[in-house]
Simulated assay, not measured.
Amino acid sequence: MQRRDFAVVLATTVPAALAATPALAHGRPGGGQPAGQLPHRMLQALAGELEDRNTAADLVPHLYDVGFEWESETAPLGRLDFLIAYGFGNRPAVGGGNPTKVLPEPGPVNEELADTVARIRRRRRIPVYAQWEIARFLKDKHQMKDVTSIEPVIEPDGTITYLSTDGVAAQVAEARRQLPGGIGTAGVIGFRDHVKRCVQTTRDRGITAYAPRGFEMPGTYDPQSGQPWTRRRDLYLVHDMAAQWQVLRQKMITAAYPNG
């Protein structure tokens, strides 16, 4: 099969499969296996393209997960011991200045994420760990207590090193390990297209994690964001898929060759 034929198969079968299979269109809230015809059709197309059905069978679950599954596993609020809120985008500092040494403005998306945390906290009062852009709103707008702000790293010369999603998860994991009762189960709050990876990254740091069931995550992009990849959905989804592939690549290499 030619490469253009593979693209044609996906272009013609994906919309039909999604329309015929609501479970695919709306994700797997319970964390079950993908249903419907789409993975099967993907396997047929890729096996023909690669001329290797075994390798295609290995790859299709990853292709489906990264490219077609955007919902994270959820759990009821009563199962959660604390919340982790991951930031998304920002706005350039109002006064300008060197962006390597001047913190940006948190921006409207992080305000929406803070509002989501506040709604959840009204239902269940548990500790919150929030990336600093969200923590600012939780403290100033919502006057929320029991909030730990995950701050960027500022070097002695004033240079700011911003934490990645994994960097935030690592700091929360370290803080929770110091508690007498152990880490506990996290409820993860994140931007709609980011929250799946937030849950995965939190779990990769050894924390049992779910998105809180029944709460919608913010999903409106900010065209004025200081991070270009967070201004538009098409750009962000490519960015997020690239990040998922990078993590998966390392996991697969480590699993195949644990001794290097």
Rank of each mutant, 00 (worst) to 15 (best):
Y221T: 05
E151T: 09
P104G: 03
L179E: 14
V94I: 14
T148S: 09
A173V: 12
R53E: 15
R53K: 12
H40L: 15
P228T: 15
Q131N: 10
E155L: 11
T13S: 06
A209E: 00
L24K: 02
E112W: 05
P228R: 11
T159R: 13
G31L: 00
V168G: 01
T13W: 05
T230C: 14
Y210W: 02
R192Y: 08
Q246F: 10
A25Q: 05
R53I: 13
H62A: 09
D157V: 06
Q143T: 10
G67L: 11
R213E: 14
A186K: 02
T208P: 02
D157N: 09
G96T: 09
F88M: 04
V188N: 04
W229H: 13
P104N: 04
Q224I: 04
D65E: 15
R123T: 07
D157W: 10
S149Q: 04
T13M: 09
Q200V: 06
V60W: 02
T159V: 11
P22K: 07
D157S: 12
V94T: 15
R123Q: 15
L50Y: 03
R28N: 01
M217L: 08
W132C: 05
R91T: 06
F68V: 14
Q171M: 09
T159C: 07
E49F: 14
D58C: 15
D81S: 06
